[in-house]
Simulated scan of single mutants.
Amino acid sequence: MIGIGDAWRSASQRIDRLDARLLVERVAGCTHADLIAHSARLLSAAQLATLEVLVRRRLGGEPLAYLLGSAGFYGLEFMVTPAVMIPRPETELLVDLALARVQSLPAPRILDLGTGSGVLAVTLGWKCPAAVLTAVDLSPAALAVASGNAAMHEVAINFLAGDWYAPLGEQRFDVIVANPPYVTHADPHLQQNGLPFEPQLALTDGVVGGDGLACIRDIVGSAAAHLRAGGWLLIEHGYQQAAAVRTLLCQAGLTEVASWRDLSAIERVSGGRLR
């Protein structure tokens, strides 16, 4: 057996120092302050074995969030598993845009399409407690994670299983948000940065030779039938897709069509409004 400080130093020789620290803290059940102040505290043989497995998985490229079982988003902590995408900071722009459009409504109806881990729906409900929230996903495993996150943050959400608008009937909403699959099928980035470990169903529409916009076309094409008068559709997309998405929004009859840039100055979200 070795102390948690020595375990951290040993792991730091094989993986990133911060990653090593977070894994040791998770295995030891301690805080960063504990790690510094009580570095001689011993890890059991079982804990050392668990740490070794986690370090090897990280060396193999598995994202840290899956190893820790959680990830941060908009100041909140969310459970994540390989059944859902890991939330990205740039997606927080969708939250800001949606909140700005419902702040004057007493009980806004908000729809999150392809909810995944539920970060959009849960964060919107957390920031706007009066909102009436619905979230849809095709994956039962993803819905289970999202439901757990909603319960953890005490946000009431109506979760529905199905393909985009299919389970909604004639329901209409003040704001629809979506972070759909938009990476092209053969994009080399799908083999980098831990993406092979994330659900491909959430990353790419799988259309061989396609442009990555198949899901966005489905969402935009049927949005008018599910928006209230004056309601907004807001969609995250790829860094080179803003112009194409704006064209789709205009073709669908939406007005005030625009794109918004994330903190990296990339046009990350596009949207439009039903007259």
Rank of each mutant, 00 (worst) to 15 (best):
A144E: 04
L48S: 12
H226L: 01
V145W: 05
L99M: 04
T50S: 13
V175F: 08
L22G: 01
I15E: 02
S70T: 13
V53M: 11
V208S: 12
A11N: 07
L42R: 15
L274V: 08
H38I: 06
S147E: 14
R101F: 07
D16Y: 07
I157C: 02
C215R: 04
T255D: 05
L168G: 06
L43G: 00
G60D: 06
Y74L: 08
T134F: 02
R57K: 12
S270G: 05
V119E: 12
A223S: 11
P89N: 14
A40W: 05
W8Q: 03
L93T: 08
W164Q: 07
I36P: 01
T50E: 13
P196S: 13
S147N: 15
R172W: 14
W164L: 05
R21I: 03
S104M: 12
M85W: 02
L248G: 03
D174F: 12
S139V: 07
D34I: 15
W260S: 09
D112I: 07
A178H: 14
A71Q: 14
T255Q: 09
R26W: 01
I4G: 02
P129N: 14
F159L: 04
V155I: 07
A40H: 09
R246L: 13
V84S: 03
H153K: 08
V27H: 04
G61M: 12
T31F: 02
D137V: 03
N149L: 01
P188M: 10
E154L: 14
P167Q: 08
V122S: 00
I4M: 13
L254G: 03
V269T: 11
G272R: 07
L248N: 04
A131L: 12
V132T: 09
A214K: 13
G271D: 15
Q103V: 15
G212K: 03
L248K: 06
L97M: 09
L233M: 07
A186H: 09
P180F: 15
P89H: 11
R26P: 00
A186P: 00
S259H: 05
A141G: 04
L263F: 13
V55S: 00
L227W: 01
E90Q: 09
G238A: 09
L94A: 02
L23K: 10
E77L: 14
A7V: 04
R101A: 05
A146V: 05
L76Y: 03
M1V: 06
T115M: 06
V155Y: 02
G116N: 10
T50L: 08
E236L: 10
R88F: 03
V95I: 12
E25V: 06
G271V: 11
S222C: 13
R21C: 02
L190V: 13
S70D: 06
T204S: 13
L274Y: 08
R273H: 15
Y74R: 13
G271Y: 14
D262L: 07
Q47F: 00
A161R: 14
H226A: 01
R57Q: 04
G114H: 06
C128S: 13
R26I: 03
P63W: 08
L168K: 05
L67C: 03
A65C: 01
K127D: 11
S10N: 09
E267Q: 11
G29K: 15
L22R: 11
C128M: 13
T255Y: 07
